[in-house]
Design a protein around this nucleic acid. Structure first.
Length: 221
DNA sequence: TAGGCCATCTGGTCCT
DNA sequence: AGGACCAGATGGCCTA
């Protein structure tokens, strides 16, 4: 009998089953798709001393106190814990794939790490995406927004893109052209249908071609 | 070495 | 009952 999870030692003790020293080889035995990502990556870590002490403390305390009316549900079985972990990894993997899609969707030319292998962090990606959306909206509403406080505070698109919740996104130091161009969009939306789009804010052609974004939108949904 | 970022485990809660 | 979602805890890795 393999003891795959730390809590199973306690469970085994309660059930009177033999307790083995932890091997923490969960994902190596997983039958799900995690095998393909990496074996060591998903191996379980030994339970930390602090957590052990905490749980022991809770256990001791529960012996001295009066029993609570509401009993805690029993811990998940080994099988269910294992499958729950696999589902959680799968869920997180989906989220990370969505982040990767988002990274590719937002213009990376504003990031300081352009040209390096450094990828945008999750929070930076989200902030950049928010500002990217704001910028696109500003471009769409060009004439109206030109007179708004938004643009009076931020005189160029970089300002819109880089200001985020009081924090600045990294700005590429040698970036001199401070306006979005069709080429910039083409990088992120290489679809051929976009290459002929006139990105002028006043262009009706631009609005007409907004539907070209639909494939991207459906891709991330 | 401290801090940021991340992956993973875990238990709680809500939903079907 | 079981799955989805979430947040807290933890430890590894990397960088300034």
């Amino acid at each position: 009998m393999d003891t795959l999870f730390p809590f199973n030692d306690e469970l085994s003790q309660r059930l009177g089953l033999p307790v083995e020293s932890p091997t923490y080889t969960d994902s190596n035995n997983n039958s799900d798709s995690d095998k393909t990502t990496c074996d060591d990556k998903y191996s379980l870590r030994p339970r930390s001393l602090r957590r052990r002490n905490t749980e022991q403390g809770v256990e001791k305390a529960s012996k001295t106190r009066t029993p609570k009316p509401k009993q805690k549900p029993a811990p998940l079985s080994k099988y269910r814990r294992k499958t729950a972990n696999a589902r959680e990894r799968s869920r997180m993997r989906e989220i990370n794939q969505a982040f990767e899609t988002l990274r590719r969707a937002v213009p990376a030319l504003y990031a300081s790490n352009v040209g390096t292998n450094e990828k945008l962090t999750k929070i930076t990606t989200l902030r950049l995406a928010m500002k990217y959306i704001s910028t696109l909206k500003a471009v769409l509403n060009g004439p109206e927004l030109a007179n708004s406080d938004l643009l009076s505070d931020c005189s160029d698109l970089d300002c819109l893109l880089l200001e985020s919740d009081g924090e600045s996104l990294p700005l590429r130091s040698d970036f001199s052209d401070h306006s979005l161009t069709p080429a910039d969009f083409a990088v992120d939306f290489p679809d051929e249908s976009l290459t002929s789009v006139d990105f002028s804010p006043l262009s009706t052609d631009f609005s007409d071609h907004l539907s070209s974004f639909d494939p991207f939108l459906s891709d991330i949904s």
